[in-house]
């Protein structure tokens, strides 16, 4: 049981770290496109790892309700499909509307 708790803690820690990095990137990066680089990747893996930790915890703590674990696994799959697609949709909308990408040496906006 101790090993499971340690593993869940590590997974939650790494996931929370990546979510934090994504938010810091959203604040620090100079323009819209680069901000989406930070959030589109870090939120996918961070959220996925946190849900994976919850799934492992559920699998060993409440083994009688397997259905909830399957639901969480589906949630991970859905996040990994949906998040890049949503990022791509916003980015395409901005590109079609004519938002100029930031180049090296320009002012941040």
């Amino acid at each position: 049981m101790l090993i499971v708790h340690v593993a869940v803690t590590v997974l939650l820690g790494i996931g929370a770290f990546f979510l934090l990095v994504g938010s810091i990137g959203l604040l620090r990066f100079p323009d819209f496109y680069t901000r989406l680089h930070a959030t589109g990747k870090c939120d996918t893996l961070g959220g996925g790892l946190i849900i994976l930790g919850a799934m492992i915890y559920h699998l060993f703590q409440y083994p009688e309700t397997l259905l909830v674990s399957a639901k969480l696994a589906f949630l991970i799959f859905f996040v990994f499909i949906a998040n890049p697609t949503a990022t791509h949709a916003i980015m395409k909308a901005a590109y079609k509307t004519g938002v100029k990408p930031w180049r090296l040496g320009e002012e941040r906006r």
Binding site: F18, G25, R28, C42, P101, L104
Partner: peptide
């Protein structure tokens, strides 16, 4: 991405 975000000078060239 974590390296690029947390680096003090932000090594990006979009």
């Amino acid at each position: 991405v974590a390296y690029r975000v947390l680096h003090p000078r932000m090594p990006i060239d979009p």
